[in-house]
């Protein structure tokens, strides 16, 4: 399968403190890749490099190369707005805007200048269906998105990202603030869309990684320890540290 994102020797430092010590990871198209590791290992930081969300933090320095297809993500001429349209992101905390469900999902489309009501309606519906939330919100499209439960809000956020039709969807611990049932629904959603999108998910939950991902990367203290097919990693990890982490010896 063709690679959609390639990264080589990515170093990132907050001021004098280096958080990523040279990470090289490639992601194949239409794969679900899970990034796992204990808190503070740099998995979220790495994820946020992919759509340049780290640019918002002051004093961050990034070296190494990151490419989305052939385009260098950190080249001086890169259009960040365009990059973020191609690489969408779902956050840890459900963060719908305090607008209606419809306005939330249509937000990205309106940004892109879409005004045709039919197109908007259709894309909102498709996205909500893809995110497996349509049945729960179809009669409440014009209600405030914040009046829904946390799990529903998170799926609305997923729909909001899908509406822009990105190529890659980044998820930063999307279920860690949710109860098990809502988490399972988010996982269903991801299974639902795996054929159309490349998904990279950061998770604390090893079982979740083993359930849904094709490949898993294990990070520890800013280093990539192991990256292989999920089945292989969970059954025959190459590295002892991976084995220890997966068996709950630390983390």
């Amino acid at each position: 399968m063709p690679k959609i994102i390639t990264s080589k020797d990515v170093h990132l430092s907050y001021g004098p403190k280096e958080a990523l010590h040279g990470i090289s990871l490639d992601f194949e198209e239409h794969d679900i890749t899970a990034l796992i590791g204990p808190s503070g290992c740099g998995k979220s930081t790495y994820l946020r490099c992919l759509n340049r969300m780290n640019d918002l933090i002051k004093g961050v320095k990034i070296t190494g190369s990151m490419k989305l297809e052939d385009q260098d993500i950190y080249a001086p001429g890169t259009d960040i707005v365009d990059l973020r349209k191609r690489v969408g992101m779902v956050f840890q905390q459900p963060n719908p805007f305090p607008f209606s469900v419809y306005e939330n999902v249509a937000y990205g489309l309106r940004l892109a200048g879409e005004k045709d009501k039919h197109v908007l309606d259709e894309r909102v519906e498709t996205s909500l269906k893809q995110a497996a939330i349509w049945d729960e919100v179809k009669d409440h499209l014009y209600e405030n998105a914040l009046s829904f439960s946390g799990g529903q809000q998170q799926r609305i956020c997923v729909a909001r990202v899908l509406a822009v039709q990105p190529e890659v969807v980044l998820l930063d611990e999307p279920t860690s603030a949710l109860d098990p049932i809502s988490s399972a629904k988010i996982e269903d959603t991801l299974m639902n869309i795996r054929d159309q999108y490349t998904i990279i998910i950061v998770t604390h939950n090893m079982q979740q990684a083993s359930r849904i991902s094709d490949k898993t990367a294990f990070l520890l203290n800013g280093d990539l320890v192991e990256f292989s097919k999920t089945e292989k990693m969970f059954i025959h990890p190459d590295d002892e540290k991976t084995s220890d982490y997966l068996n709950g010896k630390f983390g």
């Binding site: 918002l56 707005v81 365009d82 973020r84 349209k85 956050f91 963060n95 305090p98 990205g108 940004l111």
Partner: peptide, 27 residues
Amino acid sequence: VPMFYRSASLALGATRWQTIYKVVLRS
């Protein structure tokens, strides 16, 4: 206005000005 509204908007490909008038001012 919570910071995460701004990051959500930026992550969807909004410019800073679009984020200001469509999300921040509205909220």
